[in-house]
Design a binder for these strands. Structure first.
Lengths: 136, 136
DNA sequence: CTTGCCCTTGACGTCAACGTGAGGTTCTAG
DNA sequence: CTAGAACCTCACGTTGACGTCAAGGGCAAG
């Protein structure tokens, strides 16, 4: 496969693939004329890289960790990295869930503007219902 | 409160607070000499901003959404934004969980190198207690 | 009054993951 | 054989959320 094929199948730009190679994330064979040649596994690898990027891992870190992911084995140092990043991801998920809850709260109140958790509707009014949930 | 107090209590830099004001995220009163003055709610607001940042919302978007969060009411356009971002966050969480699963897999295999999901240990040998590499 | 800390407004620096030409080469279809 | 699509290597531009340095102003204590 050439770079355009991989790009299309993995859903990234050719520029990204060249960047990955530059960073040592995605080695490529070359034809005699210098064009990059990839095997089928490249597509999957690109998707893995994207996943780790999305998880907030810097490319430098991915460079260190990809061999472990490939081999399924990690040195002590790599293990420390792995667990640290795993925990960081867990924390990130918690943060995202909190943020989503904030948005959900606004969505919910806005769709349901009769509730008492809406201070904008309670300015000087009495409570139309009994308590629904926890106090704010 | 002055800017340094808010920064310390919210766990951000004073530079960040000035940046938030510049972006219209965190208005501040001024003393006659021009120094910024914040009320108690500023700390909580900063933490909310940080949460939305962590969730991947751009500051421009937060500027649009904060009034809704404050008022608990959203226009149709804002509702579209809210639900779109909520869904995007949900997708992000799923991506993070996939990435974490990848790391967990490596951690698990590396801690438990006798399993059959480890291709590096099955390349022509069945030596579960032998270490990989350095075939001396 | 001076010391010292906190504050002010610029304005340039940073870092990552690419985007975007420029200018040239190679592959493929007709 | 020729056009044009796809590829190559530089190399500078972009974006966001600040960091950081510079040059000065404000204010309570000693």
């Amino acid at each position: 496969m050439r770079i355009g094929d991989v790009a299309e199948r993995a859903g990234v730009s050719t520029r990204a693939l060249r960047y990955y190679e530059e960073q040592g994330l995605l080695p490529a064979e070359r034809t005699s004329s210098g064009q990059r040649v990839y095997d089928e596994a490249a597509v999957e690898r690109v998707q893995l890289i994207q996943q780790l990027y999305a998880a907030g891992l810097a490319s430098r870190l991915i460079v260190d960790l990809l061999p472990c992911v490939d081999a399924g084995v990690a040195s002590d140092e790599a293990m420390a990295l792995l667990t640290r990043e795993r925990d960081r991801i867990t924390d990130s998920i918690a943060e995202l869930e909190k943020a989503r809850a904030q948005l959900d709260r606004v969505i919910e109140i806005s769709l349901n503007p009769d509730a008492e958790h809406c201070p904008a509707l309670r300015t000087g009014a009495e409570r139309p219902l009994e308590r629904v949930g926890a106090t704010s």
